[in-house]
Design a protein around this nucleic acid. Structure first.
Lengths: 142, 142
DNA sequence: CCTGCAACTTAGAATAATTCCAATTCTCAG
DNA sequence: CTGAGAATTGGAATTATTCTAAGTTGCAGG
């Protein structure tokens, strides 16, 4: 049972299937994103990737992320106006930011709930995307 | 049946109750927000408010919006990294951006759905806030 | 194998939204 | 009235992201 891509070896194929080149930069960025599932920002990703590709530039990180987004491999996550974070989890899910730590984690949402929610949009609209963001505080160290 | 504040005359009281002064700038901004429920950005609001308070500055608009936010009179609405929009609807609700026009509208969500959704956050977290954003295309002029 | 061209990467400049700052101006409690 | 704290203002500063122009890369076709 493997509904989600977690293997970087597949990345090349996925990129090719989307009609874009599979470059070292793109592969490493995606790899790094898969390795630490903590929803890093472009800047954080940049720092992590630099250890493997010392000459990479921040602009490339942004470029590659956009490409990966277009291929459907990566999803941007926005909380308020903070830097965009990036998530390689392709399943439809919500996000929770821990107000205390600022860390973001995935939250699974029951499919039937998602369906009902989608049904809430006014008639005459075709849903393109849904985004669900929670903010919460980890209820005490007690 | 009036569960929602739509009357600017109440603003002064609400502000005072929150321990902040009721200034012309704050009142006009809130008033303008109530008049046109199209989720304007700070800049748009600035332009509208200028017709009534010609000497107002953009910084004041930001300041006042923050104050109104703290009083719970206004909620910020963010889609991706676009400019923050502002919403005077205090009921818990979702937002829908029409991909074609860029316009944002409110979407009511059945309370039981909201409850179930809130129940999805992991144990040990106290929910502070939930944000639900749809993006959709008005399905054709046909 | 070579070549050429389009795709990709890069560094740094540019942009856009928002916040900061320091100097007035207001307001109201005493 | 008056003075102190609160609010407003204009402009500078900040920050995340995008743009630009120049250099590299890699692959399709010869």
């Amino acid at each position: 049972m493997k509904t989600e891509q977690t293997n970087a070896d597949d990345t090349g194929r996925t990129l090719a299937d989307s009609g874009v080149r599979s470059t070292p930069q793109r592969e490493v960025i995606f790899q790094v994103l898969l390795e630490e599932r903590d929803h890093p920002t472009a800047e954080e990703l940049f720092n992590r990737v630099k250890t493997r590709l010392p000459s990479i530039s921040l602009a490339t990180v942004y470029n590659c992320l956009e490409t990966l987004e277009q291929c459907g491999l990566v999803k941007p996550v926005n909380f308020e106006r903070e830097s965009t974070r990036f998530c390689p989890n392709r399943r439809e899910h919500a996000h929770l930011m821990d107000a205390a730590t600022g860390k973001v984690r995935d939250v699974e949402v029951p499919p039937d709930l998602l369906e009902r929610l989608k049904a809430a949009i006014p008639p005459g609209f075709k849903l393109d995307q849904i985004e669900i963001n929670f903010r919460g505080s980890s209820a005490a160290t007690r």
